[in-house]
Simulated assay, not measured.
Amino acid sequence: MDVLSDVITVMRTGRPSSARLAWHAPWAQHFASIPGSAGFQVILQGPCWLISPDGMPLPLATGDVVFRPHGRGHLLADNPSTPAPPEPACDPNDPGAPRGPVGDDRLLDAPTTVTVCGGYRLDPTRTHPLLGDLPELVHLPAHLGRNPGLRATVELLASELEQPRLGSDAIVLALLDTLLLQILRAWLDQQSAHGTTRGWAAALNDAPTAAALHAMHRDPARPWTVAALAAEAALSRTPFARRFTALVGQPPLTYLRWWRMTTAARLLRESDVPLGAIATQTGYASEFAFAGAFKRHHGTAPGRYRRASIAGARD
């Protein structure tokens, strides 16, 4: 798998959710702050405003996509001057849940704004550093010809939510995962266009560093050395190590060890793969060596970690 696909696999948990909502002016709706989640808004018909507690009101237009990767709350409204409603906030992880009246509830009138909103549940114990680099708000304005994959995903998702058919449940879940990937892709492209010089956006847009990262993610079991990773990056050893550390924030083998332990933890939680097989998949010559490395990293033995994860899931 490539790095971005692995990031989604590691941090996502549970089922994402979404809903298509129509609003009648004047209207305003709170979206709650939910730790361990990320939420999005897609404006199918507008305009409207996004109002954050810690920022200036942001005007949104038809086709705009906004992403809140750290689960912070916000207000969506037809106008910044519209009073916030007294009803409970909408949960980004359950946007279709019953709420109080929206606007003046003139259901026979054409809505002034139509949105698709939703949320993803994230496990804070396995957050990839790429997510930590994301700002509080990712705004992807609609531009003709820009991000065609994102636009196509939005259109398909909106169509399935507006007119559900046989198979829509499975299609919507797949589209929500695709949407998250397309949002992250578009943000990375945006950072590249702006000449970002540090952090994970820069690392994935830097050909030598990205080559090494993809190699580690593609084959974490390989007995990688700095020299072998430098060869993947087509650089000599010292310049590669310096470049990788500056962009990723840690040396190559330190990141490799973190990724192996993160992969091992996911396999222990989500599968019944034997410990010996997990050791092999994560680059350890024996189950004993793997168990020692896992305990040093996670503070508990792999067998105990698996039992605790199973018990937690049952609770």
Score class of each variant (00 low, 15 high):
287 E>L: 01
139 H>K: 06
54 D>W: 13
198 R>K: 10
262 T>K: 11
17 S>W: 07
279 A>I: 05
280 T>R: 10
290 F>H: 07
250 Q>F: 01
67 F>P: 14
38 A>S: 15
192 S>D: 13
282 T>P: 04
100 G>K: 15
23 W>R: 15
103 G>Q: 12
122 L>Y: 02
33 S>W: 03
34 I>W: 07
274 P>L: 04
251 P>V: 01
288 F>K: 08
260 R>Y: 03
268 L>C: 11
29 Q>Y: 06
240 F>Y: 09
173 L>K: 00
302 P>C: 03
128 H>R: 11
14 G>I: 00
14 G>L: 00
61 A>N: 12
198 R>S: 14
64 D>W: 08
227 A>Q: 13
93 N>Q: 11
154 V>Y: 09
39 G>K: 04
210 A>E: 03
40 F>I: 06
29 Q>V: 12
246 A>E: 11
50 L>V: 10
4 L>C: 00
2 D>K: 10
147 N>V: 04
228 A>M: 11
232 E>G: 00
53 P>I: 03
19 A>S: 14
312 G>E: 09
139 H>W: 12
130 L>C: 10
281 Q>H: 11
58 L>P: 06
223 P>N: 07
137 L>V: 12
195 G>T: 02
152 A>I: 02
90 C>T: 11
12 R>S: 12
242 R>P: 12
312 G>N: 12
188 L>G: 10
303 G>R: 07
237 R>W: 00
245 T>H: 12
59 P>R: 03
169 D>F: 02
49 W>H: 15
56 M>G: 13
312 G>Q: 09
162 E>Y: 02
187 W>D: 12
36 G>T: 03
138 V>T: 10
5 S>R: 05
293 A>F: 08
82 T>H: 05
193 A>V: 05
308 A>I: 04
13 T>H: 02
25 A>P: 14
39 G>V: 01
233 A>Y: 00
32 A>D: 14
102 V>R: 15
258 W>D: 09
271 S>N: 10
173 L>G: 00
25 A>W: 03
121 R>D: 01
121 R>V: 05
120 Y>I: 02
17 S>A: 15
11 M>L: 09
231 A>E: 12
271 S>R: 11
100 G>M: 15
68 R>W: 06
255 Y>W: 10
136 E>K: 07
170 A>I: 07
24 H>W: 15
131 L>M: 13
66 V>T: 15
140 L>E: 08
33 S>N: 09
257 R>L: 10
291 A>T: 13
84 A>F: 07
187 W>C: 02
189 D>F: 03
199 G>Y: 06
314 R>N: 04
170 A>E: 14
3 V>N: 05
26 P>D: 09
279 A>F: 03
34 I>R: 15
67 F>E: 13
263 T>K: 12
264 A>M: 10
166 L>C: 14
166 L>I: 15
79 N>F: 09
246 A>W: 02
281 Q>G: 13
252 P>W: 05
35 P>C: 11
50 L>A: 14
184 L>C: 04
40 F>E: 08
238 T>D: 07
297 H>C: 06
200 W>E: 03
170 A>H: 09
53 P>W: 01
286 S>G: 03
5 S>W: 02
102 V>D: 15
288 F>I: 02
302 P>S: 06
110 A>F: 05
33 S>G: 09
19 A>K: 08
17 S>L: 06
124 P>G: 03
250 Q>C: 08
50 L>P: 10
23 W>V: 11
243 R>H: 13
277 A>P: 01
235 L>D: 00
156 L>P: 01
3 V>H: 06
224 W>P: 15
97 A>K: 13
